[in-house]
C-alpha cells in the first residue's frame, strides 16, 4: 500500500512537471521545439550534476552549502591547467576533480571525526573555497583556454551537447550506486537511523565520507563544465548555486531529515526548475518575478509531498 503511495508521490511531481510543460507549450509555442528543449537540458545539466551530488549527502542525513564555491574554485583550478599548448585536456579535468575530492574529504572528515555539524563545516568551506578561488586567480577571470577544454562545455557529440551527455552519465551511475550497491543502501540506512546502521555493522563514518566526496566531486565536475562553457575560470561563478541544487532535491521528494529520496526525484526537481526558468524567460517575465515564482514552487512542492506522506 505504502509502495503505491511512494509511487503516487513520485508521480505527483512527474505530473506537475508535465502540467507545467503543457501550460508552457500552450502559452508559447516555441517552448515545445527540439531546439528549445535541448537548450533547457543544457542549461539544467550543471544544476543537475550538483543536485545529484547533494542528493547523496541529504539522503545520508547531511547538508552541503559549499557547492557554489567549490564550482568556482575547481573551475579556476581547471582553467589554470587548460591554457593552449600546455597540458593535454585530461590534465585540467583530473586536477579539477581531485580538488573536489579533496574538499569532500576535508568536509567529510571534519564532520565525522571532528563531530562538527555539517551545516557549520560546509558553511565554513563555502567561504574558504571562495577565498581560495579569488586568491588563486588574483580575483581576475582565468581566460585563454584551449579549444579542447572548451569542448567539454560547448561541444556536441552526435548533435547532443556534451554537458547533457555528462549529466546523463551522472544520472545513470548515481542511480546504480544508490539502488544496486551496498554503499548506496548504507547511505539510506545512515540517514534514516545512524544508531541502527552502526548496530548493523555498518561503518557509518565511511558511508558519510563517501557521500561528501561524491557531492564535492560532482560539484567539481559541474565547475569544470561551467568553466569550459563560459571559456573562463571565473572566481565569482556559482554564487548561491547550492540553493538551486538543494531546492531541486527537495522538490524531488528527498527528505531533508535523511533516509528518504531518489535520483529520479532529483532529476524531475531539476527539470521543473529548469523548465520554469526557461518558460518564464520565453514569456518575458522579469527575473524579479521569476525568483518569487520559484520560491512559491519550492514551498508548494514540499506542501504537496507532506500531504501525500500524511495520507
Amino acid at each position: 500500500m505504502n509502495f503505491a503511495k511512494n509511487y503516487l508521490s513520485k508521480y505527483g511531481i512527474l505530473i506537475a512537471l508535465l502540467v507545467i510543460c503543457i501550460v508552457l507549450s500552450i502559452a508559447t509555442p516555441y517552448f515545445f521545439t527540439v531546439q528549445n528543449l535541448v537548450i533547457v537540458l543544457r542549461q539544467v545539466s550543471i544544476n543537475g550534476i550538483l543536485a545529484i551530488g547533494v542528493t547523496f549527502v541529504i539522503i545520508a542525513g547531511g547538508i552541503d552549502l559549499s557547492l557554489g564555491s567549490v564550482i568556482a574554485l575547481t573551475g579556476v583550478i581547471a582553467a589554470g591547467f587548460a591554457h593552449p599548448n600546455t597540458y593535454p585536456v585530461m590534465m585540467p579535468v583530473l586536477v579539477g576533480l581531485s580538488a573536489g575530492v579533496l574538499i569532500g574529504t576535508i568536509n567529510g572528515l571534519t564532520i565525522t571525526i571532528g563531530k562538527v555539524a555539517p551545516f557549520i563545516v560546509t558553511l565554513g568551506m563555502m567561504t574558504i573555497a571562495r577565498g581560495l578561488a579569488l586568491v588563486l586567480s588574483n580575483g581576475r577571470p582565468v581566460t585563454n583556454l584551449s579549444p579542447s577544454f572548451n569542448f567539454i562545455g560547448g561541444g556536441d557529440v552526435l548533435h547532443i551537447p556534451v554537458p547533457i551527455l555528462l549529466f546523463a552519465l551522472v544520472i545513470l551511475i548515481s542511480s546504480v550506486i544508490l539502488k544496486y550497491t551496498r554503499i548506496g543502501r548504507y547511505i539510506y540506512a545512515v540517514g534514516g537511523n545512524e544508531n541502527a546502521a552502526k548496530a548493523s555493522g555498518i561503518r557509518v563514518n565511511r558511508v558519510k565520507l563517501f557521500a561528501y566526496i561524491m557531492c564535492s566531486g560532482l560539484a567539481a565536475l559541474a565547475g569544470i563544465v561551467l568553466a569550459s562553457r563560459i571559456t573562463t575560470g571565473q572566481p565569482n561563478a556559482g554564487i548561491a548555486y547550492e540553493l538551486d541544487a538543494i531546492a531541486a532535491v527537495v522538490i524531488g521528494g528527498t527528505s531533508l531529515l535523511g533516509g528518504r529520496g531518489s535520483i529520479a526525484g532529483t532529476v524531475i526537481g531539476v527539470l521543473i526548475i529548469g523548465v520554469i526558468n526557461n518558460g518564464l524567460d520565453l514569456l518575458n517575465v522579469s527575473s524579479y518575478y521569476q525568483q518569487i515564482i520559484k520560491g512559491i514552487i519550492i514551498i508548494g512542492a514540499v506542501l504537496l509531498d507532506r500531504k501525500n506522506a500524511r495520507q
Binding site: Y188, A189, G192, N193, N195, A196, A197, K198, A199, S255, G259, R260
Partner: peptide, 9 residues
C-alpha cells in the same frame, strides 16, 4: 526505534 530499525526504510 533507537538502535534496531531504520524506521523510514
Amino acid at each position: 526505534k533507537k538502535t534496531g530499525l531504520v524506521l523510514s526504510s
